[in-house]
Design a protein around this nucleic acid. Structure first.
Length: 293
DNA sequence: CCGCGGGCCTGAGAGC
DNA sequence: TGCTCTCAGGCCCGCG
């Protein structure tokens, strides 16, 4: 499940082979991802250079020499793999260093760097879109996103403001990309456990300027940042689909404190609780009912 | 405006 | 190469 740390891991794998390179050849092997690929997708990419590869929440953003930005989302099961052409590329020719494309290899970028970048997505919840750079901030996919959790402006005051008056659960609030952008089910569970806050707590109870609510919001911000940093350092979490671009697994799934650990002892020092699984909004939540209040 | 729940999509794994 | 069922969840959308 690609969340912010997995997308950032992918970005770091792709940047060295895509930044400064041009699209020599683009294969759109299936156009029906979550949304149809843009009109003239191949034509709008081929020959263009990637000036930079960035990330916003769970979106990868390739800045193109044409003035457009290529937005890519991994959905539930998307992954990128990098391989390298064996020899000097012959103009007009292309091949697949790792053999024929697989069943779910939907888009292939042959870069002038010699890298062959393949987007694979069995469930096709991923998407690609081209947007003029000047319109990026107004794009419906980007416009509604809340603050970057690892950015400078995300702090307790901002989180408190976003939660103010909300009767929904903390779990639902943190999963809402308008509140904070980039968390998914796994890192919401992990951050709440680190902050010792119950996923069932009303979001609005984080929202005052002083006292216990502000202290809770501060703890939660610190926990979110810490778990994301730790996960990025580990190359993300590999449960079913996530791979680094070199095919290696991420390591952070071994460091989960509660996610997918129902029945195990709570890892909080001194806590005698047992991790429980409940369902919120038709999604699994894992938490410790003893130390998360 | 807000929150909830359905639907998209496929593979893995359980149960028979 | 067993078949069927359920579950996994990021995100959008419609409903109340």
């Amino acid at each position: 499940m690609p969340e912010l740390p997995e997308v950032e891991t992918v970005r770091r794998g792709l940047a060295p082979v895509m930044e400064g390179a041009r699209f020599r050849k683009v294969e759109a092997r299936r156009a029906d991802l979550r949304f149809p690929l843009p009109k003239d997708f191949v034509k709008r990419l081929e020959g263009k250079a990637v000036q930079g590869l960035g990330r916003r929440a769970k979106y990868l953003l390739a800045d193109l020499s044409s003035g457009e930005v290529l937005l890519m989302h991994l959905g539930m099961s998307g992954s990128f793999r990098v391989a390298h052409e064996a020899k000097e590329a012959v103009p007009g020719e292309f091949h697949h260093p790792r053999g024929a494309p697989g069943k779910h290899d939907h888009v292939v970028f042959h870069m002038t760097s010699g890298a062959v970048v393949t987007f694979n997505d069995p469930r096709r919840f991923g998407s690609m879109k081209l947007v003029p750079r000047a319109e990026l901030e107004h794009d419906p996919l980007i416009r509604a996103l809340g603050p970057e959790p690892l950015g400078n402006v995300f702090d307790a005051a901002m989180l408190a403001r976003a939660c103010r008056g909300r009767k929904t659960s903390l779990k639902a609030a943190l999963s809402d990309q308008r509140v904070v952008a980039g968390l998914g089910n796994i890192y919401v569970c992990e951050a709440l456990h680190r902050a010792r806050l119950s996923p069932k707590r009303r979001a609005g109870t984080l929202a005052t300027r002083t006292g216990a609510p502000r202290e809770r919001a501060g703890r939660l911000v610190a926990a979110i940042r810490a778990v994301l940093h730790d996960a990025i350092r580990a190359g993300g979490s590999s449960l079913r689909d996530h791979r680094r671009t070199d095919g290696e697994l991420g390591d952070f799934q071994h460091a989960f404190r509660v996610y997918d650990r129902a029945g195990e002892p709570c890892p909080t020092p001194g806590c005698r609780g047992t991790v429980r699984r409940i369902v919120q909004g038709a999604r699994s939540t894992f938490y410790c009912p003893v130390c998360q209040k």
